[in-house]
Measured scan of single mutants.
Amino acid sequence: MDALKSAGRALIRSPSLAKQSWGGGGRHRKLPENWTDTRETLLEGMLFSLKYLGMTLVEQPKGEELSAAAIKRIVATAKASGKKLQKVTLKVSPRGIILTDNLTNQLIENVSIYRISYCTADKMHDKVFAYIAQSQHNQSLECHAFLCTKRKMAQAVTLTVAQAFKVAFEFWQVSKEEKEKRDKASQEGGDVLGARQDCTPPLKSLVATGNLLDLEETAKAPLSTVSANTTNMDEVPRPQALSGSSVVWELDDGLDEAFSRLAQSRTNPQVLDTGLTAQDMHYAQCLSPVDWDKPDSSGTEQDDLFSF
């Protein structure tokens, strides 16, 4: 819950932080000083300027060897085509990944977070970031790969997607708890209302004896509580940590079903599988986004697919 609360507080303090972009060759504004600060901008989305290598189908939802083989196929196909790589912007948030063309600003792909089953910074092609997700059109699994400016960037994108998945799962947990509370309150309110109706004398007997209905007592009954809980029953509950912020979080049926399955089948359902080692994760978390744009010590960066 700490990640969720800190993310909400950060967004309320400075929503404009989320509009910064990394990996864009110096076009961005001043960047936060450390990885923790940038992680807090996830709610509205972190932007990464990358190059799209392509996509291939895979048979399993996750796995280092599986993704490595898929990336190898994608890279080989991209090299064989001889075409310049498409420059894209990857927007990562707890909602998922939005992929747009840098030149036309046209939407290429919009992947809900619950469809993503794996992401990684490839070991062999260490400047490549990739994720595996279920197609929104059918049940097939797709591996999408992107060329980053350097290994640090690939690791940073991988960690960002993993963190977005974690925050999304926490949102789901909060929403589920809130819905259970509202359902319980609604049920209790309905029981109270039913009890009051059972003990209320029939209207005919009131008229016969000349008694008047006590409207004041009726007004004191917990009807307002019942209506408050039943009027918006169809509205999706939102985490309290975000009250007053500009973010509107809505959970669709697909996300609810997917996270429910994860909660039942996995020990740590909030953790998205990645190909990063503990050492890689520690190294990337210690980086400032400013470091992502620094040239690798191995030599001059080449803006070309064939540089790796």
Rank of each mutant, 00 (worst) to 15 (best):
S6Y: 14
G8Q: 07
R9N: 12
A10W: 01
L11F: 15
I12D: 10
R13F: 15
S14N: 10
P15S: 08
P15A: 00
P15D: 02
S16R: 07
L17E: 12
A18S: 14
K19Y: 13
S21Y: 11
S21M: 06
G23K: 14
G23V: 14
G24A: 14
G24Q: 08
G25Q: 12
H28S: 15
K30A: 10
N34F: 03
T36K: 15
D37P: 13
T38D: 06
R39C: 06
G45N: 08
G45E: 15
F48M: 12
F48L: 01
S49Q: 09
Y52C: 12
M55C: 09
T56G: 04
L57N: 14
V58P: 00
V58N: 01
E59Q: 15
E59P: 13
P61F: 06
G63A: 15
E65P: 07
L66F: 11
R73E: 10
I74V: 11
V75A: 00
A76S: 08
A76V: 12
T77H: 08
T77R: 09
K79W: 05
G82C: 04
K84H: 15
L85N: 01
K87R: 09
K87S: 15
K91V: 07
V92H: 00
S93C: 12
P94Q: 06
R95N: 00
L99P: 07
L99N: 04
T104G: 10
T104W: 07
N105V: 09
I108R: 12
I108N: 01
E109A: 14
V111N: 08
S112L: 04
Y114I: 08
R115T: 05
R115C: 04
I116T: 01
S117V: 15
S117H: 13
Y118E: 02
Y118I: 04
D122R: 00
K123V: 07
M124I: 11
M124W: 05
K127R: 00
V128A: 00
A130I: 05
A130V: 00
I132G: 12
A133I: 05
A133Q: 12
S135I: 01
Q136R: 10
Q136D: 12
Q139C: 13
Q139T: 12
L141F: 08
E142C: 09
C143I: 06
C143Q: 13
A145V: 00
A145W: 00
F146V: 01
L147C: 03
R151Q: 05
A154Q: 01
Q155E: 14
Q155C: 07
V157F: 03
T160N: 04
T160G: 13
T160R: 08
V161P: 00
A162E: 04
K166F: 08
E170W: 05
W172S: 02
W172D: 03
V174Y: 08
S175F: 02
S175A: 03
E177D: 15
E178Q: 07
K181C: 12
D183W: 10
S186V: 02
Q187H: 04
Q187I: 02
E188Y: 02
G194K: 06
A195W: 02
R196M: 10
C199T: 05
P201S: 04
P201V: 04
P202T: 14
S205W: 03
S205H: 14
L206W: 09
G210V: 15
L212W: 12
L215S: 09
P222F: 06
T225K: 11
V226R: 08
A228C: 10
T231Y: 07
D234M: 03
V236Y: 06
V236F: 11
L242D: 03
L242F: 10
S243N: 07
S245V: 03
S246N: 14
V248I: 14
W249Y: 03
L251E: 09
D252S: 06
D252F: 03
D253C: 05
D253Q: 09
G254C: 13
D256F: 02
F259T: 02
S260L: 10
R261E: 06
R261N: 07
A263R: 06
Q264E: 01
T267Q: 09
N268G: 02
P269W: 04
D273G: 04
A278F: 09
M281F: 05
M281N: 07
H282C: 13
Y283P: 11
Q285H: 15
P289Y: 07
P289A: 01
V290F: 13
K294N: 12
D296I: 03
D296R: 05
S298L: 02
G299T: 14
D304W: 05
L305I: 13
F306A: 06
S307M: 04
